[in-house]
Amino acid sequence: MPYRVVLRPSVAKAISQWGLSDFMLVEVYIRLREQLAADPTRLLMRLTEPFDGMVYGFHMIDPENRLCEHFFVFQVVFSQDEQTLIVAKAGYERREGL
């Protein structure tokens, strides 16, 4: 049974500012909704500084522009109902001209 995934409104706003193509936006959506939701214990990485919690990160070369690489990382917390993953915050980097 996959987890339900919810995002803080500030995360939606942050994503809107990344300037992603439709392809990449859908990719991020699929990674969160399908991959992370299906297997969070495998995909989440534990950090202890500067906060004690979990992050989910991935990177990929843009298939529509092979000179562009995208790096994503999300701070994720399990809800108390243990059925929902809350995306608390997000970070993004882009490298152009590999």
Binding site: V11, S16, L25, V28, R33
Partner: peptide
């Protein structure tokens, strides 16, 4: 919090 579909639609 926003459901993931709503969040990406907003984004």
């Amino acid at each position: 919090c926003l459901e993931i579909d709503e969040a990406f639609a907003q984004a």
